[in-house]
Design a protein around this nucleic acid. Structure first.
Lengths: 344, 344
DNA sequence: TGTTAGCACTCATCACTTGCGAGTGCTAAT
DNA sequence: ATTAGCACTCGCAAGTGATGAGTGCTAACA
């Protein structure tokens, strides 16, 4: 069990390192008002903390830096909550001042502001489309042999797909088809779409539509091609301004990773409410060794919709980021809910 | 006027520098088969080329590197055309093998392949939506007081906007409105939409729809909020692998620039057909001092739709990139045209 | 007259040394 | 239990010298 003094020293050490990015020495610490002990005393405690695995040295005679375990302890036990400054609050509110005409636009802007406020990189996972329900189907023929299928969801999201029309399909065929689709598929989850279409709706279509086989081949494929979560970034370059990435190797690795959307999703805990912190190797990604990820999620109504994350160096300002994320995810949820569930 | 030997030496120097990224010395050049002259002769010619501004030295006793003027001359006069390798052709074709269900998807994939083939960064400007014409309007109410407006263009592109519904608007009001919009606005260019809506359609709507004022305030704003060209990147991180950007400053500058979409458009010549090359400072952008941009454009039918660009170091493999861009832009145009204009 | 060999000179780069300073661990005194 | 003192460690920056690739110039050569 750690003594009070050890707790204090650990906290101050982490705080100091987060601010300066320099190894923290005992002399330096003892100068601070909060630490009324001599360098020697501090050294002893630091040595203990090192033995316990909370601190590390970069070389035999350097100051200490927090280990991953140190950060973990700091985050779990030493992080005192904090109110967002009114300045920050104002910035956050500004996202919602303009008239909202597109959900994506709001999310993109949220990403930007977050990265601006934190000086780290933000990632927003767009609404998980597969959870949305079909509100309306529509098919618009473009040429003799191609058309675009449009799905509007109850969340106001619009998906569209090109598909080929078989020769000789009439306008009334299409009208019939749209009617059937709307009757049968309204209210179905997008991820259920393919299943329901094949098992239930197919038979009905077959009865009423000419050239059923060809039509379903291209339409079915178009409709069920994956509905993906979009990924929005804010301030990709922000990370590069922190000293831990002045190593070109690491910088490259990070940028490359961010370009590969598939890796990104592994950074998000699968949809738990609340704020989660993953430190360094806890991300299970080589490129993220020196990074921490803090995630939150936003909701529409009661339903979990998407996630917000901030990526920063392990030496990031956890306290500030946690508060900002907390406020931001709350406001975003409230605003989206207001618009899309206002009154039914 | 340059002698034949000087032309040769300039060409070989640029070629060599493009390959090695190292200043080219006279001894080194004289070893090549294509250059049957002694180092001393080469030195004399190089000195002349330097006086003329085509070559530069990094320091008093280093080899020569091409100046911007040197690259410009090389690109304008010494670049012999080249056929794409069948390997490259195959890769390019692969973009179109899958069934195409979304234009954006094809463009995104094009961006990826291009950057993969060149090892530079590619930028594709999506279709310039403002040039498209309205094919169909649709409005889907979400809740009592919000709805989503959908515009389908003749190119199969779908735009959607959220807007507020005034209290007490009936379903039949909306139906009427959609009918009027479709009658009046079909065939109108998207960039003309706001004008036509205000000048011509507004009067008609006013006659038939209750709560006209409130409705038009939110609907009009939603519809006319900018229809932007989307920007697609391929291989943002690719640039960082070239030695000219091992300087963190420059790398940061580039990545930051790429995050600011508004700067990007300035890299594209305003919609000229054919292939254009801008070298270093010709881009009028500080961050791009050490970069060249090669642009081409793609069309749907006869109409200029969007642009393709490759960003590489000034020391980029111009010949290869030009051929690849040429082939790719042609294929992309052909494929998009086939799908969207197949038969009317 | 155009080309080439020879030579003195320049400059970046790398390995090596050295001094400095911040920091440590240990021991003995308080 | 805490602190002062001291010898020791190590990273870092500045300085040194050797190396080699490259140059400009001049004189010889075909």
């Amino acid at each position: 069990m750690l003594t009070n003094r050890q707790l204090l020293i650990l906290q101050v050490t982490v705080d100091d390192f987060i601010q300066t990015a320099q190894p923290v020495g005992s002399r330096q610490l003892s100068k601070k008002e909060e630490v009324p002990f001599s360098p020697a005393t501090i050294r002893n405690d630091m040595a203990d903390l090192e033995d316990l695995g909370y601190l590390e040295k970069t070389h035999t005679s350097s100051g200490r830096i927090p280990s991953e375990k140190g950060y973990r302890f700091y985050v779990d036990h030493l992080l005192t909550p904090q109110l967002a400054s009114s300045d920050d609050m104002q910035q956050i509110q500004s996202v919602f001042h303009e008239r909202i005409t597109e959900t994506e636009q709001v999310i993109q802007k949220t990403a930007m502001i977050l990265s601006e406020l934190t000086s780290y990189t933000s990632i927003l996972l767009g609404p998980d489309v597969r959870k949305h329900r079909v509100k309306r189907f529509s098919i618009v023929p473009l040429t003799n042999d191609s058309a675009v299928a449009i799905i509007i969801t109850d969340s106001g999201h619009v998906e569209n797909r090109l598909f080929q029309l078989p020769q000789g399909l009439t306008a009334s065929d299409i009208e019939k088809m749209v009617n059937i689709l709307n009757e049968q598929l309204t209210g179905v989850h997008l991820h259920e779409l393919q299943r329901v279409l094949e098992k239930e709706t197919a038979a009905l279509l077959k009865q009423h539509i000419g050239r059923y086989g060809e039509l379903m081949a291209s339409f079915g494929a178009a409709i069920s091609s994956p509905h993906e979560e979009k990924v929005f970034y804010g301030g990709k370059s922000k990370l590069l301004h922190h000293p831990e990435f002045s190593d070109l190797q690491k910088a490259r690795g990070l940028i490359t990773m961010m370009d590969q959307a598939n890796q990104i999703s592994s950074l998000f805990s699968p949809n738990q409410a609340g704020i989660h912190i993953r430190i360094g190797s806890e991300n299970n990604l080589m490129e993220m060794e020196d990074c921490s990820v803090i995630t939150a999620s936003y909701t529409i109504g009661e339903e979990q919709m998407g996630s917000i994350a901030i990526i920063g160096p392990t030496r990031m300002d956890y306290r500030r980021v946690v508060t900002l994320l907390d406020v931001m995810s709350g406001d975003l949820s409230r605003e989206l809910t207001r618009i899309l569930r206002g009154s039914r």
